[in-house]
Design a protein around this nucleic acid. Sequence first.
DNA 1: TAGATTGTTAATCGATTAACAATC
DNA 2: TAGATTGTTAATCGATTAACAATC
Lengths: 223, 223
Amino acid sequence: MQENLSISKATVDRLPRYYRCLRQLADEDVEIASSEELGRRLAINPEQIRKDLALFGQFGKKGVGYYVAELKESIGSILGLDQHWNVAIIGMGHLGAALANYQGITRLGFRLAAIFDVNPVVIGTRVGERRVEDIAYLAEIIAERDIRIGVIAVPAAAAQDVADRLVAAGIRGIWNFAPVNLRVPSHIPFVSEDLSVGLSSLSYYLAHVSTDSHVLSDKNPLI
Amino acid sequence: MQENLSISKATVDRLPRYYRCLRQLADEDVEIASSEELGRRLAINPEQIRKDLALFGQFGKKGVGYYVAELKESIGSILGLDQHWNVAIIGMGHLGAALANYQGITRLGFRLAAIFDVNPVVIGTRVGERRVEDIAYLAEIIAERDIRIGVIAVPAAAAQDVADRLVAAGIRGIWNFAPVNLRVPSHIPFVSEDLSVGLSSLSYYLAHVSTDSHVLSDKNPLI
DNA sequence: TAGATTGTTAATCGATTAACAATC
DNA sequence: TAGATTGTTAATCGATTAACAATC
């Protein structure tokens, strides 16, 4: 894990996909996989995969391939998934509820350590194994429970304020679902999921695929 | 909108962001915006924006900038948002419910025309203005109501089957939320939203930012 | 061993940024 | 007009693909 040069965002975005694929392979009791096989499953060039992996070390065996279990562990550790960080979700609307129940978070090794809302009607209700807490105690609880990641699932208008409070409380990273361009100090990594981008770009391809069929013809540009 | 050459995925992914920004500007009653101003708001280079827009036509006025309302309409039309396509959501778990209540879908001009599930307990219940229908009638209803986009919000294990049925029913595009690599005929555009990718890459930056702070230092690689 | 497949260097491709003439 | 800002061409940068020597 001793990379010394900057890893491109494109590579970082592929790592989770490698990880998921390796877990699936492990579930299927596949012990060894070549870059060729991984590439087939992920629709990614084998060369690309080998190049990405080589940035972090020598994980394969020439003439053999990659040991699935081993590589899975290595990538998990590169992604920091073995650190079991505590996560808080802020905003218990429909989306917040979906995220609180989202298996993926715990399956990746994160712990849902707190759920916050402003609405007195919602505060105190049970969501899964947790109880919704008053956002007034945000800072205290984040510090107390060593919460590292804040998930913003509040309406757009409240998002920047929540982000500011999270940063002030010492959060390490932000996963944002509000459709706004958050302003966050540059040392705090954050990822924004804007669902409308996905739907709009799908719409674009729908609007253009029928007339300009070559737009999508060769080399499917969608993931 | 008479582009004749393939537009890169990178550009298509930026269009929705331009669109959202223009709508915000319109809400603020801003009438004219330069590529400089748009760039500041979106953290995108002005040159990039001008280049992207120029691929579709000449929307700006030299020495002046872009007329917000006009450009908003143009980009909306490029994205196909003026077509008001009918959408169906398949799977009424937590995520499906969140999507059914997601304002973004209707705000972009899509119509939620059907909601499907397999579970007899869920079928018939109200979600917003619609009633959940039996997935057994998927094909008929898609044809009857001219539904163009299918949103897959079922568990991973069921996703490929649902995709196959959507395709057989004549769906035009698929918005997939199940964490699987769907196999879909190449003429059907689809976009997959894998939330675990976003969370994992955030985790990566968290795991590496403290020790290798230069990884994120200049030119924030996150959106 | 022979065949297969990695890790890595070199070549290509595409996307971003810079520069500037055109023009409002 | 002078100043500002677009549209577009050229230069740079980065990422992907191809090729192949190393080696299991």
